[in-house]
């Protein structure tokens, strides 16, 4: 199975890690606020499902709330493997970034 992360996947995974536990609608809000870019919800859900299938996320069915028309949310949480993967990716990027000559 493909063990590398795409750019969107990486950001969603990072956001889930930051929130400890999150769900589709919240992630859309965070993404929009963080990246100042619009994104459609199905794109996010799609990514979540793919990450779950790869074993970086795990999900549970949460409590229904009124603002969702009484529907249950599906809560996602990063697995250890997900955490490691992001850590590795970030380390690699950071180490490269550190060596980039700074513009003055």
């Amino acid at each position: 199975m493909n063990q590398s992360l795409g750019a969107l996947e990486e950001i969603i995974l990072l956001l889930v890690l930051r929130e400890k536990e999150s769900y589709g609608a919240e992630l859309v809000k965070l993404y929009v606020n963080q990246m100042s870019k619009e994104i459609t919800l199905p794109a996010v859900v799609m990514v979540l499902k793919r990450l779950e299938k790869k074993g970086f996320l795990k999900s549970r069915v949460g409590e229904p709330t009124a603002e969702r028309g009484g529907r249950r949310k599906v809560m996602y949480e990063a697995t250890k493997m997900g955490y490691r993967l992001v850590e590795e990716a970030m380390n690699a990027k950071n180490s490269i970034w550190d060596m980039v000559p700074k513009l003055s």
Binding site: Y23, G24, A25, V45, G69, R71, R72, K73
Partner: peptide, 12 residues
């Protein structure tokens, strides 16, 4: 996925 997506969409 319908339930999950519908809920999320409505919230958004």
């Amino acid at each position: 996925h319908l339930d999950e997506v519908k809920g999320d969409l409505e919230e958004n």
